[in-house]
Design a protein around this nucleic acid. Sequence first.
DNA 1: TGGTACATGTAACATGTTACATGATTAG
DNA 2: CTAATCATGTAACATGTTACATGTACCA
Lengths: 177, 177
Amino acid sequence: MSSRNLNATAASLLGFLHEGPLTGWDLVATAQQRIGDFWSLTQSQVYRELAAMAADGLIEAGERGPRDRRPYLITDAGRAAFAQWLGRNPDEETIRFPLLLIVVFGRYLPPERLAEIVSHHRKLHAARLAEYERAREQLTAGPADAYHLAPLDFGIRYEQAALAWFDALPPEIRGAA
Amino acid sequence: MSSRNLNATAASLLGFLHEGPLTGWDLVATAQQRIGDFWSLTQSQVYRELAAMAADGLIEAGERGPRDRRPYLITDAGRAAFAQWLGRNPDEETIRFPLLLIVVFGRYLPPERLAEIVSHHRKLHAARLAEYERAREQLTAGPADAYHLAPLDFGIRYEQAALAWFDALPPEIRGAA
DNA sequence: TGGTACATGTAACATGTTACATGATTAG
DNA sequence: CTAATCATGTAACATGTTACATGTACCA
């Protein structure tokens, strides 16, 4: 019961556990699929948070199943902690964009190399946009779920804005016309 | 000379030191102003990286000036390390967007509260857009500097996309019409 | 029967955050 | 003379990343 206060990663795990017991492994997969586009986490982190939350009484481990699967269930204390976290004003987003650092210091790089880096990243964004659009088709095929659609819609708008930015870059950065 | 390889934060400090010697304090201010919108760093981190880079021979401390100001100058090894870092393929950006977590779990929150949170964040984004636009006016007033303008342009497009997203949210999330 | 995917966990380290301690200089 | 700002730095801790160790079950 060390009772640190909940971070967003731990809180998200509690969120998923509202839908039923899940193992660490399942939680990693669920989180990557459902929030991975705007909230990254690793397997190590998940097991660490699960151990801490179990110690704090927010979750409880069930019996081990096949392959040592160990499902966790949320407790009433866990539900309360989640509700408390959810009602707080969330922090503003942080963006860490290494490519923009390269651009800022672009004068120190041979122009062709800069253009190559930029063009490579444009491709990555185009691919992500395509992926998001496929995901949206899948989501909108089933019953409407505004809460899942909204973040995806953000991703789509974000990638569209990014592509427009790439295309508007001046020749010093983007390379030959 | 422990020679870890350069992280983006340390590399950025080296980038700024190309323009002349700066103290830790100056570097914090410079970094926050020039790259703070897409690469956050704290004062603690800067002093830590400076100590590490000095130990690695990438920078050298000059004589202490008034108020114990301690300017650092980049060495040839530092310039080489920077060039090497700059030429690498940068990682993809990471976005950590707590508001989207709240939205994903929005079904567990009273609708008015969700709408309130969302509306508050919309205001923050509108304010950031206004700030960026002011900054762009200032930048475009002087001699054109594509390398600084480009990241700012990204910020503007990003905030515009964000605002459009807010305005397109369905009533379940955004609140009453 | 051998490879792949499933599953848990630890260790070590890098990075990021918050708070504090200390003192110098400047402006009012 | 006093408050604000400048300036350096440390300490403690939270979070994020990478690599590894161990073993299970399924499927071709």
